[in-house]
Design a protein around this nucleic acid. Sequence first.
DNA 1: TGAGGTAGGTATACGCCGTACACTTGTCAA
DNA 2: TTGACAAGTGTACGGCGTATACCTACCTCA
Lengths: 238, 238
Amino acid sequence: MVQQVEASRAALSRDRVLQAAVALADTAGIDSVSMRKLSQELGVVPMALYKHVANKEELLDGMVDVVVGEIDPPRRHADWKSPADWKSAVRQRILAARRTLLRHPWASRVIESRRSPTPVVLEYMDSMIAMFRDGGFSIDLTHHVMHALGSRMLGFTQELFDDSQRLAPNAQAAGLVEMAGRYPHLVELAMAAAHEADSVVGSGCDDQFEFEFALDLQLDGFERLRQQGWSSKAPTPS
Amino acid sequence: MVQQVEASRAALSRDRVLQAAVALADTAGIDSVSMRKLSQELGVVPMALYKHVANKEELLDGMVDVVVGEIDPPRRHADWKSPADWKSAVRQRILAARRTLLRHPWASRVIESRRSPTPVVLEYMDSMIAMFRDGGFSIDLTHHVMHALGSRMLGFTQELFDDSQRLAPNAQAAGLVEMAGRYPHLVELAMAAAHEADSVVGSGCDDQFEFEFALDLQLDGFERLRQQGWSSKAPTPS
DNA sequence: TGAGGTAGGTATACGCCGTACACTTGTCAA
DNA sequence: TTGACAAGTGTACGGCGTATACCTACCTCA
């Protein structure tokens, strides 16, 4: 009776649960997404969530679907001027994916952690494959190219590397000389990066530039293979 | 007194803890590496571990160090015949890293999850940078190239993609026609991959081939930039 | 010799987590 | 009216990481 009117606890649904989970992850970080905290956010008892998702794994799958579903759709093949347009079509889509993933910084980690792809991710991959095929790539080449893209396909790569961002502050005071002794090349590189990045904010690397650099290098490599009518195992044209 | 003799509970030490953790992860999976199970494995009470590692994060860091420390060292620069040898030196080292990481399948996930690199990883990166510099790469180009390699530097990439391995078994019976309707390009590709892989075991993809394909494509791209004396932001030679 | 510090192992307890299971309650079809 | 069903509740269990206090064997040095 009262409940029907009270907006803040409108009836739960799978979608409302997933939306709330994404919102919670966005604002409080992925570590805050526990069944208990999420249920609290929804004004409900923890076990109530299990009427809408089977378990936490499925919740995370659903969150991935929400995020990947936000990525702009690809340019329609019919709008292409030539097969060579594959490159800009793929490039645009991947950068769109990156824009979306950057809005949900937790998402890349969660995507990596899934053990089988969700339907929405499968559809994304399918449309990506379609672009290569429409661009004249053989099935085999498309296959290898998809593997080579890996997670870059969704707009992210694990960095494993945060050079100046972590090194420079870390290395203030006497720590730097010890660092320079132990990792001379790394420090040289970090210093150069920090210097070069004066124009950019905060002395870190320009992540967007690095991403596009790597992406374009790969796409150029793909195009070269396509043009030479890549047939079978001979990945090194040399 | 008795304890001194009894081999199975020789005195604990940081190294023994880390070795046991790696062994446990290797045999029982990373999920089995909890402070409690690990302590049990060592015949000791859980809190005893905290005398040798500050907390679980540090334990995981230590495990990464053990694994990365197992990677074969690089070919010495002095042994190179020409600067162009950078490519085979880098290639060999990365494939050595891959061999090591494959022996510890949990390691790539753990490495990704660390938030700042451990000293051993820093040293690995330093030696990798050294190879590019010795090969005649400018600092800037080395920087971008390191970013582009990302986790491939350590011999792995997140796959996000398991095509035939997961699709084919999944798609037996009527599921396949539904699949083919929903993801036509993906199914086409998976079928082709499964067919092509008759020679390989288990109808999955040849992960090693895919890895080397992507790696060589990147290295060739790097070499091309190096040869044209890459100076500043112009990543697309077109 | 013996007093005190210290390193290494122990015991107990707290708060978090995911979720199994049994229950109530509101809704709607037959 | 009844009875099935969907949705929310309450309680409880076993697992986790780890704070805190304690014990005890050993080493050092006066």
